[in-house]
Amino acid sequence: MTDAPHGSHHWQIAAFPLMVYWRQDYRALSFYFPDLQFGRLEERPEASGFSSMLQLPRQGALRGLGRAYHTGELRQWQAYLDFLASHDNEEDYLKEAIRGQLAPVLPKTTDPAILWPLAHQLEQMLAEKEAGMYLVGKQQQALAAVLGPDLDEEGELAGAAISYNPSLRGGLPDPELARVRLKFWQAILTPCLKSPWAALVLETAASDSSPRCLWEEAAAAGGGVYHLKLELPDWHLNTAAAKSDSPHSKLQLEFRQALEDLLTGLSVDQEVLGEAGQAVQRLVQERLWPASGLPPKAAVWLELFGWQGRAPESELLTGPMMLWSRA
């Protein structure tokens, strides 16, 4: 584990989940969040400029962690390891084991060095699964381009729909797994960050355990949840256009400042919240879209959630959070 590098901006932004496999959908992050921090970023192109804060756990670290627990906890840990050894289907047993065997231990354990090897095993399984689904989707698109409408007539060729859509227009979220992943994320990454910081949830990577469902649960329970949705141009600039003296770079800085004003409003100065939200919306519509030259369909969603008014006591939703997804 290494310290997070410090950017020139006041707010530090860190990607959720802990482990992300790079995909083309993330290219615009280099414009909107050039100093975005990642726990582990796999298969990243060098041109992205992003790096990982966390080193991979050493091999065998997971089994050696039992020595860090007290006697009562060690029984739970051994049961968890035995459970892992007796199952072959990673996609099912690891989620089940996390819930059934680890949940009683997590609140007593806050050391990132202990939690990271375990979290890595969970995140690697989930990230690889999502990366596989993404590749299957791309293959199906290529096949559809060749076969055209005939693809729909062949039931065996049509792939099963992904069970969860980040916009919640289909499928069901998994709040329990979202809580486990967010608890790991906070325990492991927050020691690397300096306040103020905020999470940026990459919803294609978070999949059915996006923390979105936790905010929507809070809103349904009557909490004062603030929500703003921005439709941004899917803008990824080359190195030349991103030079510090270019008009594009000035827009980049203006957007980041407007976004940070909004995050600050959600955190400490809610009197400016309405004005800050309107300011960032005007900047997007009047400046960013015209300068990008992109058609309206070339868009990404950036959503902001936070507490409006007096924040209730919440173990996980402690401050503003952003969500990134395809429009």
Rank of each mutant, 00 (worst) to 15 (best):
residue 2 T to G: 11
residue 2 T to H: 08
residue 5 P to K: 08
residue 5 P to A: 11
residue 7 G to M: 02
residue 11 W to H: 04
residue 13 I to S: 00
residue 14 A to S: 08
residue 14 A to Q: 03
residue 27 R to A: 10
residue 29 L to F: 10
residue 32 Y to C: 02
residue 37 Q to G: 02
residue 39 G to D: 01
residue 40 R to P: 06
residue 50 F to M: 10
residue 54 L to Q: 07
residue 56 L to I: 10
residue 66 G to M: 08
residue 66 G to V: 13
residue 68 A to S: 10
residue 68 A to G: 07
residue 70 H to L: 04
residue 73 E to T: 03
residue 75 R to C: 04
residue 78 Q to S: 02
residue 84 L to Y: 08
residue 85 A to I: 08
residue 85 A to N: 15
residue 86 S to G: 08
residue 86 S to L: 09
residue 91 E to C: 04
residue 92 D to C: 08
residue 95 K to F: 12
residue 99 R to W: 03
residue 103 A to L: 15
residue 104 P to G: 07
residue 104 P to T: 12
residue 105 V to F: 12
residue 111 D to P: 04
residue 113 A to T: 03
residue 113 A to K: 11
residue 120 H to I: 03
residue 129 K to G: 10
residue 132 G to A: 09
residue 132 G to S: 07
residue 134 Y to W: 09
residue 136 V to W: 02
residue 138 K to P: 00
residue 139 Q to K: 04
residue 148 G to L: 13
residue 157 L to H: 12
residue 160 A to I: 07
residue 162 I to S: 01
residue 163 S to V: 04
residue 164 Y to Q: 02
residue 165 N to S: 08
residue 168 L to H: 10
residue 169 R to A: 08
residue 173 P to D: 03
residue 173 P to W: 02
residue 175 P to W: 06
residue 178 A to N: 09
residue 178 A to V: 09
residue 180 V to M: 12
residue 181 R to Q: 11
residue 181 R to L: 08
residue 182 L to E: 00
residue 188 I to N: 04
residue 193 L to H: 06
residue 198 A to F: 00
residue 204 T to K: 06
residue 205 A to L: 09
residue 207 S to E: 14
residue 219 A to F: 09
residue 222 G to L: 09
residue 223 G to Q: 02
residue 223 G to V: 00
residue 225 V to Y: 05
residue 227 H to R: 14
residue 232 L to A: 13
residue 232 L to G: 13
residue 234 D to S: 15
residue 237 L to K: 05
residue 237 L to Q: 09
residue 238 N to W: 04
residue 240 A to H: 14
residue 240 A to I: 14
residue 242 A to D: 13
residue 242 A to T: 03
residue 254 E to D: 13
residue 254 E to I: 00
residue 261 D to W: 00
residue 267 S to K: 06
residue 269 D to H: 07
residue 269 D to F: 06
residue 272 V to N: 05
residue 276 A to H: 05
residue 282 R to D: 06
residue 283 L to Y: 08
residue 285 Q to E: 15
residue 286 E to V: 12
residue 286 E to S: 11
residue 295 P to W: 04
residue 297 K to C: 12
residue 301 W to H: 14
residue 302 L to A: 11
residue 305 F to H: 15
residue 311 A to S: 04
residue 312 P to I: 07
residue 317 L to C: 02
residue 319 G to C: 01
residue 321 M to V: 12
residue 325 S to Q: 14
residue 327 A to T: 09
